[in-house]
């Protein structure tokens, strides 16, 4: 079953973005605790991970949606928003969150998500704003290498308990890593920041690498702390 959709898609698609999948079907699958694996799919409708199942109250203010299975997609096109939050509700991902070489045509918002698995958006394209604020990622690697962000992308106040990579990424809009904590290495080599950048109050437990990095505007590195 976990691979049914994957197989179905891989068998019937021959080129990028040929198969159409409804966002609500993805959520249904995740609700059953089954992993979603897609390739060359076009996803229609808003994909809101916080729609999954019943929200569990966290304290008196918040509620948590919980995705227990892995999410993997490769060469996917998301025609509508991809989000993982609501007012006073966030999403916890127990497994991996992988969007490899995918295209996001509308906004992306993973604010407040808590992710225990791998995070990988390598070579993905964000055509609209992408917000990853106040996330907590517990895995060893969060990979945004070679991504292209056409508009604003921000990771404000997020914490990464492993490494975080923007290697060879291209940012056409603004980029913010304000008050972010990276326990491991922050890798920004060859990244091209075409918009304004904010690294204020960034803390890293490992190295922060900016070799061959291009900045169109002077970056804000105020109050940053690099332990090594």
């Amino acid at each position: 079953m976990p691979f049914l959709l994957f197989l179905l898609l891989t068998l019937t698609s021959s080129c990028f973005g040929e198969i159409t999948v409804k966002a609500r079907d993805i959520i249904k699958k995740l609700e059953k605790g089954e992993s979603v694996e897609m390739k060359d799919a076009v996803v229609e409708g808003v994909l809101d991970f916080s729609d999954i199942g019943k929200l569990s109250p966290v304290g008196t203010v918040l509620a948590e949606a919980r995705v227990k299975a892995n999410f993997f997609c490769m060469h996917c096109v998301f025609k509508e928003k991809v989000v993982a939050k609501k007012n006073n509700a966030y999403t916890r991902f127990d497994g991996n969150v992988i969007f490899f070489e995918s295209e996001f045509q509308k906004e992306v918002d993973f604010s407040n998500a808590v992710i225990y698995g791998m995070v990988n958006f390598t070579r993905s394209i964000f055509k609209e704003n992408a917000i990853f604020n106040q996330m907590a990622v517990w895995s060893k690697n969060s990979d945004f290498s070679e991504i292209t962000a056409n508009k604003k992308i921000s990771f404000d106040v997020s914490s990464f308990q492993g490494n975080l990579s923007f290697f060879d990424a291209k940012f056409l809009g603004s980029f913010s890593l304000q008050e972010v904590f990276v326990l491991g290495i922050l890798q920004s080599s060859k990244a091209d920041f075409g918009g304004k950048t904010d690294f204020a109050m960034l803390k890293t437990g490992g190295r922060a690498i900016f070799q061959y990095t291009k900045f169109k505007y002077e970056p804000d590195f105020s109050d940053i702390k690099v332990e090594k």
Partner: peptide, 18 residues
């Protein structure tokens, strides 16, 4: 627990070099 506090708490507790 609270939304914002979740990641911040991780920052505080999770960083051995804090």
């Amino acid at each position: 627990m609270k939304k914002y506090f979740v990641p911040l708490l991780f920052v505080l507790l999770g960083c051995g070099n804090h």
